[in-house]
Computed example of a mutant assay.
Amino acid sequence: MGAYPLHQAMKNISLILLIGCTIPLKGLSNNSDSASFYFQKGIAEKEAKRFLPASRAFDKAVTFDPTMVSAYLENAVVSMEMRRIHQAMELYKKVHQLDPQNKKAIEALMELNYNYRNYREAIRFAELCKGCEQSDKIVGMSLYQLEDYPAAEKKLQEASRKFEQDAEIFYTLGKNYLDMEEYAKAIPYYEKAVIIDPTKGRWMYELGLICYNQSKYQEAVAAFDKAAAAGYTQSSDFKENLGFAAIYAGYDERGEALLLELQSKKPGNTEITRSLAEIYYQQRKYDKSLKMCQLLMEKNPDDSKALYQAGLNFIKKGDKDRGQQMCDKAIEKDPSLASLRKKKEMPGGL
């Protein structure tokens, strides 16, 4: 056989190389077309609110093009619609991995991590989310949850200036000051929060407790009333706090009615009646204090503390002899009461 012509060999080699290059390119083109086809199918299903078929179509799209950011992003959106929160988070993470500057993914991861109580991750994504409206709020609330109260205060103050009608920001600021034990500072932020959102009964109840502990009793009663009107459960604790706030605010009949009703449900516990006797005594309402002492002694004729308190009331009313005799009799029954002779008033309740 003759030698194979060199020029023919070169043509065959070129043909082989050409075929070798063309086949993969054709495959890539087919993959791209398929990815685009399933992506468009997913969009159509999404617009028709058929979210599960949409999600499956987006899944199919990325099998043909694993770098298709738009498919992962749309799949995350429909996953949220289906309340598949964990799946959505993983999809947004994939978008962030492929496109670190993708604002939609960063913003979503900021919010999802906060909702999942991954506060440090929420802060990290918030700091990446340049220009995101909620970033200061998320950072501030995350810092509050992490108990970094001074830093939380700064961020939440910044957020409150941007969003003057965001009740949650003002409420969290109030809670932040409360946990910093700056109670007077907490009150105006609670007040602002419940003005913006008057449906938050729990917030109103917390405001009432703060006002009560700051000796703002009328404000406390008003806050408790608003909490009840907003649907907050009027438990025994709620009624007791409202009752004592009413007494201290000067609404004696209302407070007394609430408290004695509670006392009637626990006949073996006289703590509320004793407290009323002491409060009225401190307020120089001696007849009312005597009424409470009488209730106590009707339940237990040997109640030496109630007898002693009654004696003090008579002394304050000007009937010193009668009052002194009652105090002496009480001390005979309970010698420990003798130490109270050195004090002008009964300490901290009977």
Rank of each mutant, 00 (worst) to 15 (best):
G20D: 11
D319W: 10
S79V: 01
M292V: 15
M110D: 06
S236Q: 15
A76D: 02
T273C: 08
M326E: 02
V78W: 01
Y177K: 05
K288E: 14
M346G: 03
G174F: 01
E256C: 06
D237M: 15
N102R: 07
S336F: 02
M80C: 08
K226S: 11
C293G: 09
A222S: 11
D252T: 07
V221Q: 07
Q309M: 08
L156Y: 00
E298P: 15
K41V: 05
A9S: 11
M141C: 00
Y116L: 14
M82L: 15
E127D: 07
S264Y: 09
M89K: 12
K329R: 11
R117G: 03
C293E: 06
D303M: 01
L276K: 02
S36T: 09
K200Y: 00
K342R: 05
Y119H: 12
Y183A: 09
G231I: 14
M297S: 04
L290S: 15
F51I: 04
T22I: 10
I196C: 00
T233R: 13
F58H: 00
K200S: 10
V194K: 09
E168S: 03
Y177F: 06
T233F: 09
D252Y: 13
L17E: 07
K94V: 02
L209N: 11
F314T: 12
A310T: 00
L350G: 05
D166F: 00
K226N: 07
K344C: 13
S142H: 08
Q8Y: 15
A108W: 00
A35V: 14
I315Q: 06
G174L: 02
L15K: 11
E206M: 05
Y171E: 10
A245S: 06
G250E: 05
Y114T: 02
F51Q: 07
A61T: 14
R124Q: 13
L52A: 14
K103L: 14
V95M: 04
S32D: 10
T233K: 14
T233M: 15
C211L: 10
P267L: 14
A61E: 02
S36I: 10
R284K: 10
F244N: 02
L146Q: 14
K342F: 09
P188D: 01
L17C: 13
S79I: 00
L260M: 11
R50I: 01
A3P: 14
Q134L: 11
D99C: 03
N241F: 07
Y308W: 13
V95W: 02
L25D: 12
E191F: 07
S135F: 05
F39R: 00
G20M: 13
Q234A: 12
A257I: 07
A227G: 01
A3R: 14
L290A: 12
P347L: 12
A257W: 15
E81I: 03
I106W: 01
Y38L: 03
K103H: 10
I106G: 01
A245P: 04
K103R: 08
Q40D: 15
A54F: 06
N213L: 05
K329T: 14
A230Y: 09
R161N: 15
L295P: 13
D319R: 15
M68H: 09
L73E: 09
E240A: 09
L146M: 09
P5E: 10
D319F: 13
N118M: 10
E345S: 10
L178G: 05
L258A: 02
T199I: 11
C211M: 06
Q40V: 12
C293V: 00
K137S: 11
A228N: 04
Y119P: 10
F224K: 02
A122Q: 12
D302E: 14
A35D: 07
